Amino acid sequence: MRHVYLALGILSVAIGFVGIFLPLLPTVPFMLLAAFFFARSNPAWERRLIEHPQFGPHILAWRERGAISMRGKAFGLLGLTGSAIMGFVFLHDHWRYIPLGVAVICGTWIATRPTK
């Protein structure tokens, strides 16, 4: 099972790295996921993520308090709002309400997390 966790951790870091360059793909959630997988497969790589100047504080804040930075909340809520608007404009009939419902549910969850 250790090898599976290691592979998933590497995949999470790779997707998170791509997210640095693609504006709609988040980076930090994939680094959180990578830290989770590395904690179970390669503690040295987990330590490197935790000690990273960009990702480490976010990982520790999430682990300790379930906290999201104000900037992360703002971008997350902005992305959800944009997705809901695009769904409402481009989808037809009752389908247009699905992105809105997802945005409300996920946005509420994000907004209620503690702020880092």
Rank of each mutant, 00 (worst) to 15 (best):
R2K: 13
C106T: 13
A7V: 08
F38M: 05
A67G: 03
E46S: 01
F38E: 10
G87W: 08
W45P: 00
W62N: 00
I98L: 15
R2W: 03
I85G: 06
G19W: 06
F90R: 13
L8G: 08
M1L: 09
R47V: 02
R65P: 00
T108R: 04
I50T: 07
Q54R: 12
Y97W: 15
A74P: 00
I10Q: 05
W45V: 03
G56D: 02
W95K: 07
A44H: 11
R71T: 13
I20P: 13
F30Q: 09
W109V: 15
M31R: 01
I98C: 10
F90D: 02
R71K: 13
I59S: 07
A61R: 03
G87D: 08
P99M: 06
S83P: 00
H94P: 08
G101W: 00
V28E: 10
D93Q: 11
R113G: 11
T112Q: 13
P26D: 08
N42P: 01
L8C: 14
I85E: 03
T27Q: 10
G101M: 01
P29H: 06
R2I: 11
W45G: 03
M1W: 03
G9F: 00
I68N: 04
K73M: 04
I15P: 08
A61Y: 01
H58C: 05
Q54S: 10
R71V: 12
Y5Q: 13
I85K: 03
L25N: 10
W62C: 00
V104I: 15
V28G: 07
I110W: 01
F21W: 12
H92K: 12
L78C: 11
E46G: 01
